[in-house]
């Protein structure tokens, strides 16, 4: 392991840590508000380590939805990682099997974006750099989850201090992060309309899968356009 590479990774990851930290705290607070203990919230942050899917999981958990649907929803929100790990393949092939295990375990949107940028600019993506970048996001993510959980426990009802509205706004921001993609507006319009109709007819949580499938089916049917690599939406941790 090269020390210089490791610390360069730490420096590169620091801005990501600063922008992701509030979401770690947000997750901790929302998790406790929806009935998780602080220890469970931290366990979830340590083992899943994907902000959006953690928030989706906890939101569905608060609605007392069947566990397999929650797991499926977490899978659906994290599905984009399949595309990331595919696109990253040429730059991490030289990692050992153990290094690959850890590298993919901590794969996030910004990790993907920076790895691709570094690899495509011709610089070597060393494991030391990769894991330095990852750790400066991973470790504070756990600390912020715990702090958010403690804070959330003191407050009780999230409506009193307006935390409840942060979640849909955060998801809206994530959606908007993909606005440069092919078929963005038609997909959002169809998924949105179908999910609202399904919410009122079929009911929660099916509106999530039904709306998502409608948007994906539309994208598959529309004329194929060239699309830049999926490297935007580097917001959450």
């Amino acid at each position: 392991m090269s020390k210089a590479d490791f610390f360069q990774g730490v420096r590169n990851g620091t801005p990501v840590f600063l922008s992701a930290a509030p979401f770690g705290a947000l997750f901790g607070a929302v998790a406790v508000a929806n009935g998780q203990t602080i220890a469970e919230a931290v366990l979830m942050s340590m083992t899943i380590f994907a902000g959006a899917s953690q928030l989706v999981g906890i939101e569905l958990f608060g609605q007392h939805i069947a566990p397999w649907v929650i797991v499926l929803s977490i899978f659906a929100v994290n599905f984009r990682h399949i595309l990331y790990s595919a696109a990253m393949a040429p730059f991490v092939r030289h990692f050992t099997a153990v290094e690959k295990f850890f590298a993919f375990f901590v794969l996030t949107d910004p990790q993907f974006a920076e790895t691709l940028r570094r690899g495509e600019s011709g610089r070597k993506v060393s494991f030391a750099w990769y894991i330095g970048f990852a750790l400066v996001i991973y470790v504070p993510w756990q600390v912020m989850t715990a702090l958010g959980g403690i804070f959330g426990q003191l407050i009780g009802d999230p409506k009193v201090i307006g935390i409840d509205v942060l979640l849909p706004i955060y998801f809206m921001a994530l959606v908007l992060g993909f606005r440069k993609r092919a078929n963005f507006l038609p997909v959002v319009a169809v998924s949105g309309a179908v999910s609202v109709i399904a919410y009122h007819t079929v009911g929660s949580p099916w509106h999530v899968s039904i709306g998502a499938i409608a948007g994906m089916a539309l994208a598959a049917m529309l004329p194929i356009k060239r699309d830049p690599a999926p490297r935007e939406a580097a917001q959450e941790g």
């Binding site: 659906a76 993609r181 963005f184 997909v187 998924s191 999910s195 509106h207 999530v208 709306g211 994906m216």
Partner: peptide, 21 residues
């Protein structure tokens, strides 16, 4: 076409969390 569908996944999934809210 599979790639186009996969490419639509994040916007399609996340929108279903925003619109009903």
């Amino acid at each position: 076409r599979l790639e186009a569908a996969l490419n639509a996944v994040p916007a399609a999934v996340l929108t279903t969390l925003v619109a009903p809210a």
